[in-house]
Simulated scan of single mutants.
Amino acid sequence: MDSTYLHILQKKGLKVSNTEDLMKIFLDTLLETNKTYDFFVDWKKVRTFVEKNKVEINILNSLLHSEDFDNELRRILRKYPEVLKVVPLLLAIRDNSVSIISEFDLEKTNVIKLDFTERNLREEEIEIFVDFFKKTGLKDFFLNVADKSLLDYILGVEVGMDTNARKNRSGKVLENFLKPIIEKIANDLKCTFLTQEKFSTLEKYSININKLKDRKADFILLKPRGDGSYGVVNIEVNFYNVSGSKPQEIIDSYIERQKELKEYGYEFLLITDGPAWKEQKSQLTKALENLDFVLNTYLVRLGILEEVICMI
């Protein structure tokens, strides 16, 4: 922990004299969650996808309870090959091509690859897709499971598949919370504010950090100096709901990041939060001991972030 940071914490009325004191405050004030109301489903994305493919979905809808399913499917594939692109979604698959083991025994393994991109199909390809519908259970689904609306079914599938994107949404929540706070601090201090930019972007400000030029930063503040140059403050933000190997990897990479920035006379600051830190105390200790400035959202709200940026 940097002595400047210690002074700022004490100035704000916190009883901190060492890493252990800061650790206790840190753990006692962690956010329980970073879930917001829009965390669960991105309804706009779901609706957009379904609307975009509404025509093709309705064409396939005609197959529900068909008395001549195979021939009707052949007719559709010949006349409306654009329906191919929505077939994988019926099985909750995003890819537009799928490899399948069609035969496996002691002597050989046969793998076929199905391409669901729109195109005019050869008759042999059509037969492969008819077989695909039968063997994957889609034919039975159309005839015996689905009721009246394939559109409603696909809407449900999209909602389910969108939950896979929750991790990405979760990773951005804290960053989105903090962005206006950091931007306001930057504006108040007359700093240039950059977000999600590679360090190579700094070359336009005559700043070259060669070791990091291909790395992307969550936030970068450029503090004007009296001689016309800039001081650089890199702020990284993350949130951990569950414990695992990720915090260790991240902390090690941030220690190295700070070292590289200091070689150029620049600063690094980490804002991290989340209940997982209670199970990763050794990694948190490592961060507090080896990184000059580690804050959580509680410390940010106390105004410590602004104080740190002013002082460094």
Rank of each mutant, 00 (worst) to 15 (best):
L178A: 03
G171E: 01
F132P: 00
D214R: 15
I154W: 02
S149C: 06
L155I: 09
G171H: 04
D162M: 05
Y205M: 06
D131C: 10
L151H: 12
K135Q: 14
D131F: 13
Y205W: 04
L155S: 11
D214W: 11
N210M: 01
E203P: 04
E123I: 08
K135N: 11
F177M: 11
I185G: 00
V157D: 10
F133R: 06
K204T: 13
P180D: 02
N210V: 09
S206G: 04
E123R: 02
A165P: 00
L189T: 06
L212S: 02
Y205D: 05
A186W: 01
L202P: 03
N176V: 01
D188P: 00
T163V: 12
S170R: 07
L212A: 05
D188T: 00
K134R: 15
Y205G: 05
S200D: 13
V130A: 07
N164P: 05
E158N: 13
V157E: 12
L178I: 09
T201L: 07
L202W: 00
K213A: 09
I181E: 07
K134T: 09
E175A: 04
V157G: 10
F199S: 00
E124T: 12
F199W: 05
M161H: 07
P180V: 05
K167F: 15
E123C: 01
S206C: 07
I207D: 00
E125P: 06
K135R: 15
K167E: 14
L189I: 07
E175Q: 14
Y153E: 02
I154Q: 03
L194Y: 11
K179P: 03
K213W: 01
L194A: 05
A165G: 04
S170E: 10
L143M: 12
I182E: 02
D140Y: 06
I207E: 01
K184E: 12
L189H: 08
L151V: 15
T195L: 10
N210C: 04
A186M: 02
L143S: 09
I182F: 06
K167G: 11
V173I: 15
L143E: 09
C191D: 13
S206E: 13
K148V: 07
F129L: 08
D131N: 13
L189V: 04
G137K: 03
T136D: 08
L155R: 08
K148H: 12
I185W: 00
N176D: 14
N164E: 14
L202E: 04
L155Q: 04
F132A: 00
I182Y: 03
I126A: 04
F132K: 07
I181Q: 02
K198Y: 11
T192W: 01
N176L: 02
L155G: 08
D131M: 11
K211M: 08
E183V: 05
A146K: 08
T201G: 01
A186V: 12
L212W: 01
A146V: 14
N187E: 15
P180Q: 10
E123T: 09
K198T: 14
E197M: 13
K148S: 15
I209W: 06
N144W: 08
E175M: 05
E197V: 15
E203F: 08
Q196H: 14
D147P: 00
M161Y: 11
D214A: 07
A165Q: 06
E183F: 03
L174E: 00
L143Y: 09
R166Y: 01
F129H: 10
E203A: 15
